[in-house]
Design a protein around this nucleic acid. Structure first.
Lengths: 156, 156
DNA sequence: TATAAATGTTAGGTTAATATAAAATTTTTT
DNA sequence: AAAAAATTTTATATTAACCTAACATTTATA
């Protein structure tokens, strides 16, 4: 019955709370003013659920929310949101551009993995992408060959 | 109060249940006879929690468990466990051997990601590993260079 | 500007996954 | 074999993350 009681110093957020931060940032880019309902809509959850989560983030100085008003991120919240968004972008590009995973699936998997992979790991992954591009994607033809190679699936 | 009621046809397991299957398989490789307490020990949860989860798996024909007796996997359970273990292994090797992530961290991250990444994706990742090995790891010297390249971290 | 519509908040409920504590059963020791 | 020790099971509690339904507030409109 008690929700989001996790009052200790809050070193790391749950995947769910990270998604709320990420969504606020994403919506701010298009709308400038973000409301509880926008977040609910975007995440396909009820506004009552959003309300509780955002109030928890506000209590922990990651978001700002005045009753019946707009939602925004604090500097601290924005920093975290940017980090997660960065992870998402790198993971997505790796899955879609390097492994040739269908964009819908790549996005869905990136959206899960982003909450469990470290910053260090994604940075190295990013560098690997650069390297791969240099070695294998200099010409279109090579990219097609790489794609054929990676897509071969022999039901192991 | 009711636990693991999810009685619909059970198409996909939660990360937690997948971990139980994976653990049973892992323990069977060393001990031949797996008990509730072994699983609890291995996953750092209480045996009461294990008991509930294993009974749920048993109801869904993924595990076998007789009261106060041994735990085992059904064929169906073993098939799933092998899949997850395969994902883990490929992810671990990619993170540790290709991105040079510390083995403890690589294992931890593989253990989370394995529940959210598709079979198709890991198979392509595996092929990429083979390719990378061919191109960059033919000699030790090259491996060292690749490592230096990927580990460079400029605080972006 | 009073009322209807839309949006946001609160109260209480549900589920997965854990925990604690006590009861039941099995195994070990004396 | 009886008592003690270890293990497993059951009952109940807790927490995060959702939900529904009722209530509150704001915005739009007649």
């Amino acid at each position: 019955m008690v929700k989001f009681k996790r009052s200790e110093s809050l070193n790391n957020l749950s995947a769910s709370l990270e998604n709320y931060l990420e969504t606020i940032m994403m919506l701010k880019r298009k709308k400038k003013h973000v409301r509880i309902g926008d977040i609910a809509n975007s995440l396909n959850v009820k506004s009552s659920s959003v309300n509780i989560a955002i109030n928890f983030l506000a209590e922990n100085e990651l978001a700002i929310h005045e009753k019946y008003g707009y939602v925004d991120l604090t500097n601290k919240g924005e920093k975290i949101a940017l980090e997660i968004q960065g992870k998402h972008e790198i993971l997505y590009r790796f899955l879609n551009n390097m492994l040739f995973i269908d964009s819908k699936i790549a996005d869905r998997e990136a959206c899960e993995i982003e909450h469990f992979i470290g910053l260090e790991t994604v940075h190295r992954l990013e560098r690997l992408c650069t390297l791969l591009k240099e070695y294998f994607l200099v010409k279109d033809e090579d990219s097609v060959n790489l794609r054929r190679y990676l897509e071969k699936y022999e039901n192991y």
